[in-house]
Design a protein around this nucleic acid. Structure first.
Length: 741
RNA sequence: GCCCUGGUGGUGGAAUUGGUAGACACGAGGGACUUAAAAUCCCUUGGAACGCAAGUUUCGUGCAGGUUCAACUCCUGUCCGGGGCACCA
């Protein structure tokens, strides 16, 4: 439609084909992922073409193609140069029995999905991308885009900016100290114990000898739990006392230091001050382990539950009598003056764990030299390609299978003769998909990621249609990369996607997500063969709103086919000729319906409301069946309206009507608003809000005329008999509501 | 546990800012055409009660309240389904 309206439309298709499933299949079958990925892509391309989508295959891209991932690697090197890519020790799901690192989805209840072997969280050196450096911009620039509010909310929530303070606690009989982050520094007087995340290195330094056994056991147990697992167990609080005490800086009080897995090392400093009187989790924990609870805010009943509302401070020394806002300011000033804390902003967003211990991903273009230095592969050597192999085996050490390929791994500096090893981790699937929309704009460019002039012409992406499962991760990563490229002066816009729309899924007949393991997959090939591509397209669009998930149902499919047949018979007779009813003569009987249809369908398409657009097309066809003459002009317009959902039949009918050129180049039909103006409107008469009558009256009657018309209406008078009119509400051209008793 | 999202006839779903609930389609029922069937065309179709009938009354958008002349729509509470999650300290 947009093309027919004179817009220049970029409608490309690409393949994001790296990733775990392909790797698994390669390991299982001993095939080269590059080969079967190519075959699969060919199948998909054939199916897509059979449905008549007008993709521009000249712009096809494939994230696994070296000429594409050359630029993915190039972006990584730029990040590395800017200090945004760094190495850190991060826990992974290590499965000793399989000799490999597992993805979260491969771990079920602490055991590997394949084989059921135990899985441990162990630290491993990994590449990280510093997305947190962009946290504020990722948050603030959400205001620039036209996205559903719920998605923006999810991203805001994910970034999770919160303003509070850090407070430093000294440890009794020790030179160590630790900081906590709190959004409620004003409740510091109520801090009766502190909790550290079990994996914090400090724990081992401070644990008292008599508690050591218990603490070690607890740490080991929590290593086996994933973070999600920890949340699952949130109802029952667990934890162990370390035997150490911290000094509350505000009153010198000694408080116990515990470890518990409800405190995550990844958020804030991995340590909290617990104020059980005014935090629900701390309250539960304190109740479980019988720890002291001191209220520092007025209101609530700490015998029953934590009080999280606002109240005047009590038991809080110099904060007594202040409200939350005043007290926070006062205590932060105090902490800063005493140098035991300061105002601080914390984000829930963590840096992006960017490496995978896999073969089937973009190689990370980094060399580790024997002298301990680390450099990026020189730009002119890109792309750094994956070594071809049919024999992908786990390395056994937790490294990627690439570690086995010693020829590939070993490098020697041609100038100095220095020896080095290539990075064997590869990039996650998110990498290639974080910038592919840029490559579509200039897919064959050998010199740069894309021509700046072309980027300027096309960006930002006007509408991005994708699944809701990408609401946070993919869309946040892509925004991050885009902003980074903006800072490098490569892309001209701050945001990649102006408008966002989440399409729903078509579910299997049993109302579950289609998947091979559920056996409810519908292959488009068989549907296209039985009913035709147009029917499939029409039905998919007619099933319901684009953003809803709906179960597949073949009955409706027949209905869609019937409609298309009906359209055909409306215009074409048994001899396969255009019907005589289609003529240049216009008796005006279809005029209003036609203009209404053009208006509604055009507007609905614009908003992606395909189901209601199709229903309007059906209404028009029903009208047309009743009409004696079918004005040529209207029929042409109708076919154009139908074309986006059923291109094949539309094109054929278009030719039947005597056109020589394809309809894709014809201008989109327009409606005349004058034809839609009604001189009579139906007005509803209500009594006490209930419909008691309706009548067609002239348009734009005055309030007085409408009231009079209502009161003189026969059925209204009947109901009104014996009642006293209290009030009359009038909505011009719509209704009259008489309040009476 | 938290966050997001949804709940409308037998079914998929419509319904602008609060203003005629159920568009359109599927299914079902009836009729026409046919030797018959399929296909096609036409009619009926939210529930209940009343009526020979045209029709009338009444209930009805998960449930319970509230605001309003008027609520699928706004507010409060609650139940159920779907999706997400990293205990926001």
């Amino acid at each position: 439609m947009k093309r027919s309206q004179g817009f220049n439309v970029l409608h490309p298709m690409g393949w994001d084909a790296f990733g775990l499933p392909a790797e698994q299949y390669a390991i299982d079958t001993g095939n080269d992922p590059a080969e079967f990925t190519k075959k699969n892509i060919e199948t998909f391309r054939r199916q897509i073409n059979s449905l008549g989508f007008s993709y521009d295959w000249n712009r096809e891209i494939n994230t696994t193609d070296p000429s594409y991932y050359k630029w993915t690697q190039w972006i990584f090197i730029k990040m590395f140069e800017k200090g945004l890519a760094y190495e850190a020790e991060v826990p992974v799901n290590w499965c000793p029995a399989l000799g490999t690192v597992l993805a979260n989805e491969e771990v079920i209840d602490g055991l590997s999905e394949r084989g059921g072997y135990p899985v441990y969280r162990v630290p491993m050196k990994q590449w990280m991308l510093k997305i947190t450096a962009y946290a504020d911009r990722l948050l603030d620039d959400l205001d620039l885009v036209d996205w559903p509010e719920s998605i923006k909310e999810m991203q805001r929530h994910w970034i999770g900016k919160s303003v509070g303070a850090s407070v430093t606690f000294k440890i009794k009989n020790s030179s160590s100290e630790f900081s906590v982050f709190t959004t409620r520094p004003d409740t510091l007087f109520g801090a009766t114990y502190a909790v550290l995340a079990p994996e914090l290195p400090l724990v081992k330094d401070i644990v008292a000898s008599e508690q050591e056994a218990k603490v070690t056991a607890y740490i080991e147990a929590s290593e086996k739990k994933s973070e999600l697992n920890r949340t699952d167990l949130s109802k029952e609080k667990t934890g162990v006392f370390t035997g150490a005490y911290a000094i509350n800086p505000v009153n010198g009080k000694e408080i116990q230091i515990w470890i518990a897995d409800y405190v995550l090392s990844s958020y804030g400093t991995g340590a909290i001050m617990a104020v059980p009187a005014h935090d629900e989790r701390d309250y539960e924990f304190a109740k479980t382990f019988n720890l002291e609870i001191i209220p520092v805010l007025e209101g609530g009943d700490i015998l029953k539950e934590a009080f999280v509302g606002d109240g005047l401070h009590i038991n809080s020394g110099f904060l007594d009598g202040l409200n939350k806002q005043e007290a926070i300011k006062e205590i932060v000033d105090w902490l800063e003056a005493k140098k035991v804390g300061k105002k601080e902003t914390s984000y829930r967003l963590r840096d992006w764990l960017f490496s995978r211990q896999r073969y089937w991903g973009e190689p990370i273009p980094i060399i580790h030299w024997e002298d301990g230095t680390t450099t990026a592969v020189p730009e002119e050597e890109l792309p750094l390609t994956l070594p071809v192999t049919k024999d992908i085996k786990p390395s056994g050490t937790g490294e990627s299978p690439l570690a086995n390929m010693t020829d590939w791994v070993a490098v020697t500096d041609p100038v100095t003769g220095k020896k080095g090893k290539r990075e064997t981790n590869t990039m996650p699937q998110w990498a290639g998909s974080s910038w592919y929309y840029l490559r579509f704009i200039d897919p064959h460019n050998k010199k740069q990621l894309a021509d700046p002039e072309k980027l300027k012409q096309w960006l930002p992406v006007e509408i991005y249609i994708g699944g809701a499962e990408h609401a946070v991760l993919h869309l946040l990563y892509a925004r991050f990369w885009h902003k980074f490229l903006y800072d490098l002066g490569i892309v001209p816009t701050k945001e990649p996607f102006q408008k966002l729309y989440n399409q729903g899924m078509i579910l299997g007949g049993n109302n579950e997500k289609m998947s091979k393991s559920r056996g409810n997959v519908v292959n488009p090939d068989s549907v296209v063969e039985k009913y035709g591509a147009d029917t499939l397209r029409l039905y998919e669009m007619f099933m319901g709103p684009l953003d809803a998930s709906i179960a597949w149902n073949e009955n409706g499919l027949e209905g869609s086919r019937k409609f298309l047949d009906r359209v055909w018979r409306l215009l074409v007779d048994e001899d396969n000729k255009m019907r005589d009813r289609v003529t240049t003569f216009n008796d005006g009987k279809l005029t209003k319906a036609y203009h209404q249809t053009v208006k509604k369908v055009t507007e609905d398409y614009d908003q992606l409301h395909f189901n209601t657009a199709i229903s309007q097309l059906m209404v028009f066809v029903n009208e047309a069946y009743k009409a004696e003459v079918l004005p040529y002009e209207y029929m042409e317009g109708f076919i154009q309206l139908l074309a986006p959902v059923a291109p094949h039949i539309s094109e054929e009918l278009w030719l039947k009507l005597g056109n020589k050129e394809s309809l894709t180049h014809a201008a989109w039909p327009v409606y005349d608003p004058k034809e839609l103006v009604e001189d009579k409107v139906e007005v509803v008469y209500q009594i006490n809000g209930k419909v008691r009558g309706k009548e067609k009256v002239a348009r734009d009657l005055s309030r007085e005329q409408l009231e009079k018309a209502a009161l003189t209406n026969e059925s209204i008078q009947k109901v009104l008999f014996g009642l006293t009119i209290r009030k009359v509400v009038i909505v011009p051209n719509k209704l009259v509501n008489i309040v009476a008793n």
